[in-house]
Amino acid sequence: MTTATLSGAFASAADFTAALGALTDPDPAAIAAARARQGQLTKPPGSLGRLEDLAVFLAGWQGTEKPSLQRGRTAIFAGNHGVTVHGVSAFPAEVTVQMVANFAAGGAAINQLAKAAGLELQVVPLDLDTPTADFTQGPAMSEAECLAAINAGAATVDPGLQLLTVGEMGIGNTTSAAALAAISFGGNAADWVGAGTGVDDAGLVRKRAVVEQALTLHAPAAGSAFDKLARVGGREIAAIAGAVLRARQLRIPVLLDGFITCAAIAPLAVEAPGITAHCLAGHCSAEQGHGRMLGHLGLEPLLRLDMRLGEGSGAAVAAHILRSALAAHNGMATFAEAGVADG
């Protein structure tokens, strides 16, 4: 596990917005070559289903006929939320700090799942002693705070990576994610608010009321993707947005985790729908709004395992599927190599 240093990948909110308007594309020659290879392998065309598409997807973003996954990273961002004063979580805010310590000690689920998937693990705590502001009263973050969080996310994206998976830790962040989803894609609080860490019925009512307050206050004035992140996001959520956009600049494919990581790119997708082209959805979680979110993003999940932990756990498990896709794509013989008639 490593620790990130702050980078100035985006100099200002305007620079972040400009980057959203100048998205890179995958390599068409590599895509064509990978598709051609799939057609030559010793199997009926299309018989490996989506595994074939995943290999071609990775080829396009890595710019090579035979992509690889020698170096992948799981980046986990942690932040605290001022909105927890309203009792929107089943756990107190200090659990965020305690879980970051657990990550450092190697005792969390993501430690084991990242290791099993052969992924580096990087944990980035973001000003845990300073929660974001209560967004029922005003913006969660100032422009400077939001930009710092975005750049902390961007700093985790090493140009040498072949895959980035993202995850989060932050008590109260399903409330923030629900507000961000609603302010981006529309709907009311009931459409997006779920149980999160496991709040009871009374807690669910409080969460919905808090999100409705946020929408009443911020939706009429919310403008750019950056503005939406600053108004109702969290530091860890803004960091995920920064990491995803920086990965796009460097043509590094991204494997998203659950509801919160998808909510982080929701405002980006509204402003620049093409942002999802280098992204895969690792899984569809049990959180209420995740399936709806994936529909808005146009992403089909690789797995449906009823997971709802966060921490990047679902994305880490899904990375095994990418490894399987690459093993078949790169390791299988062609009809000519095997001396098998191709019909």
Rank of each mutant, 00 (worst) to 15 (best):
337 E>S: 13
120 E>Q: 04
146 C>N: 05
298 G>F: 01
235 R>Y: 08
216 T>G: 15
165 T>P: 14
15 D>T: 11
6 L>W: 14
157 V>R: 08
111 N>D: 12
226 F>E: 03
232 V>W: 14
119 L>Q: 05
63 G>A: 05
309 L>S: 05
81 H>A: 03
242 G>P: 00
300 E>L: 05
318 A>N: 09
45 P>K: 11
233 G>D: 09
290 H>I: 00
48 L>N: 11
271 E>I: 05
1 M>H: 03
223 G>I: 01
110 I>Y: 10
108 A>K: 10
240 I>W: 04
90 A>C: 10
123 V>F: 07
209 A>V: 09
152 A>V: 02
2 T>K: 03
26 P>Y: 04
167 G>S: 12
333 A>N: 10
105 A>R: 14
40 Q>E: 13
81 H>T: 01
1 M>I: 12
16 F>Y: 14
34 A>Q: 11
253 P>Q: 01
228 K>R: 15
202 A>V: 14
248 R>V: 05
176 S>G: 10
292 R>P: 00
191 D>F: 02
5 T>A: 02
206 R>W: 04
109 A>I: 01
277 A>T: 15
298 G>Q: 02
258 G>N: 02
228 K>Q: 15
204 L>G: 14
321 I>Q: 04
79 G>S: 13
273 P>C: 06
188 N>L: 13
292 R>V: 00
341 A>S: 15
99 M>G: 07
154 A>F: 03
73 R>P: 07
261 T>D: 12
76 I>C: 14
